[in-house]
């Protein structure tokens, strides 16, 4: 077994394009769920909104990528308002069901034959998405990384993606230490109390949903640009739940929670997968096949989400003072 290679592959995934997509969704969810307490089970819809905006504008309408980014933000805002205005007055569990239902509803719509001309049906939209972005790649054409296995194109996406992610993290940090952040945290703790102090809770929740959705949409934009493909069935509800797992792992309502959660989540998941695959390929494990690795990874993900929620709801870097509160 080549542990060096396993480690390299694992690191590549822990900081790679897919991890970044989840990271944007998690930063957005951190505002919505972590700070404001909104049980948004339809985060994947915002990612899909971002990805499909790019796909439709660039491929279906043959317009500029830059325009599509603007459209993606407008679309995600409209989606947040459509979801939020009617539902944010509902109980938390109702909100969860409505948002997950809405995300499924949207997925079924974009994959339908009826809108195939626009959204590409079950096949989605595939082709030269993000050419304008890749044209800006400053890396020399024959560039290769010494250790990590990113292509020149992926590295460019990763550099820009992480810069944006840090920028958004800074943005969240600024938001939550302001009086605005204090109000949304209050809403998370007890909505009625905040109402009784004269705050229009509904508006704050809507703002949190819009901001979090917009950041998640960037995950979708990144997806379309990096993978050159937007497919409806990648936007299943499980995506949202993996984002929840990431957030809980890194710690909800922690500024660096999403980053820590994403890197750890993908490091563990990829590392486990690579090690197991390697064991199977080298004949150390013969009762499993290479295709089983995928299932086992997902099983562990589910188990991880359960155990985290039961034993460490405040994340793996829990605050001792908060821990004490939980014990009450």
């Amino acid at each position: 077994m080549d542990f060096g290679q396993i480690f390299t592959l694992t690191i590549t995934q822990a900081f790679g394009v897919t991890a970044l997509i989840y990271l944007f969704a998690a930063i957005g969810l951190n505002i919505q769920f972590g700070y404001t307490g909104l049980l948004n089970f339809g985060q994947v819809a915002f990612v899909a909104a971002g990805a499909y905006s790019v796909g439709v504008i660039v491929l279906t309408f043959d317009l500029s990528l830059w325009l599509s980014i603007v459209v993606a933000l407008i679309t995600s805002t409209i989606l947040a308002l459509l979801l939020g205005i009617p539902t944010l007055r509902l109980r938390a569990d109702y909100l969860a069901i409505v948002t997950i239902a809405a995300s499924e509803l949207l997925r079924l719509l974009v994959r339908s034959i009826a809108f195939k001309d626009v959204f590409g049906g079950a096949q989605g939209l595939n082709g030269k998405l993000g050419q304008e972005f890749h044209d800006l790649n400053p890396l020399p054409a024959d560039f290769t990384l010494p250790v990590l296995s990113w292509s020149r194109q992926d590295l460019w996406v990763v550099i820009v993606g992480w810069s944006l992610a840090l920028l958004f993290t800074l943005f969240v940090w600024g938001l939550v230490r302001s009086p605005w952040g204090r109000v949304v945290k209050g809403i998370r703790e007890d909505e009625d109390a905040v109402v009784s102090l004269g705050k229009n809770v509904f508006v704050y929740k809507l703002q949190a949903l819009v901001i979090g959705g917009g950041i998640a949409a960037f995950g979708g934009i990144l997806w379309a640009v990096a993978k050159q493909s937007v497919q409806p069935d990648t936007f299943q509800p499980d995506f949202t739940f993996f984002v929840f797992t990431i957030l809980l792992l890194g710690g909800a309502a922690r500024v660096f929670g999403p980053i820590a959660g994403t890197v750890i989540f993908w490091f563990l998941l990829a590392g486990f997968g690579e090690v197991l695959s390697s064991l199977i390929n080298n004949g150390y494990i013969d009762f499993l096949t290479a295709t089983d690795v995928g299932s086992i990874r997902f099983m562990l993900m589910g188990l991880g989400l359960m155990l985290l929620m039961i034993f460490r709801p405040q994340g793996i870097f829990g605050d001792r003072r908060e821990l004490a509160l939980d014990a009450r």
């Binding site: 739940f241 929840f244 797992t245 299932s295 997902f298 589910g302 985290l308 039961i310």
Partner: peptide
């Protein structure tokens, strides 16, 4: 509720 989601994912892939 979130625990039940984890359980659902776990059972599905089992």
């Amino acid at each position: 509720m979130i625990v039940s989601i984890g359980l659902a994912i776990f059972l599905r892939y089992t």
